[in-house]
Amino acid sequence: MSALLEIKNLHVSVGETEILKGLNLSISAGEVHAIMGPNGSGKSTLSYVLAGRDGYEITQGDILLNGVSLAEMNPEDRAIAGLFLAFQYPLEIPGVTNMTFLKTSVNAVRRGRGEDEMDAASFLRFVRDKAKALRLDDDMLKRPLNVGFSGGEKKRNEILQMSVLEPTMAILDETDSGLDIDALKTVAEGVSAMRDAQRGMLVITHYQRLLDYIKPDIVHILAGGQIVKTGSPELALELEKSGYADYIGEVVA
């Protein structure tokens, strides 16, 4: 069976600097993978290049989602194709209410997928149910998107977006950063609730902590722009003890 997400020999440069240097990764539907790595290893570059941000140039290799190349696709079409990136630093957008944003987003994706748009009343019910599960109250739906939200609220709001967009492939970029333990648990519950046999997830993190709550099937270590080790969840625990020092030299050597 072919993989849901297939990253093949991916080389990515930002300006003159090559950040990813031949990264290979294959995620099947139903699997949760974790990528761990030290600062500067290329974690954020990987998440941005997957989502299609400007300025990240693929110089070699390819990214396939359900067998279709994302390399030349713009960010909105990737979302329609089923990709979702939960941002490490969600943006604040003054003057646009969370609800307006969510509705525009969901309907844009539904249109793109050839589905009917949701009317205002059914969308309201739909989003309220999802928000409740993440302990986001109605007030936060009425406020401008992420403006004045705490770190935890922003991250829960990212998960809310994920749950209304129902992606087939979700990437979580350092979703644990800036969260206290209670917020972390709520976020992890929200993510875990979305695990199912049709969906793949890639959890990108510096620390093992998040993986106590979102248990991955497979753990990879990213260093120097390549996956240098792949293993079972125990690999994350090992790292927690011994740190990244063993891996930092590996690619250079």
């Binding site: 989502a51 299609g52 909105e76 844009a108």
Partner: peptide, 23 residues
């Protein structure tokens, strides 16, 4: 980029940001 990554087309995303500016 954030709005586009949520499936909102470039033109619609620009319109949204501009509308937000005068909201």
């Amino acid at each position: 980029f954030f709005l586009r990554s949520r499936g909102i087309g470039e033109t619609a995303a620009r319109v949204m940001l501009v509308e937000g500016f005068i909201a």
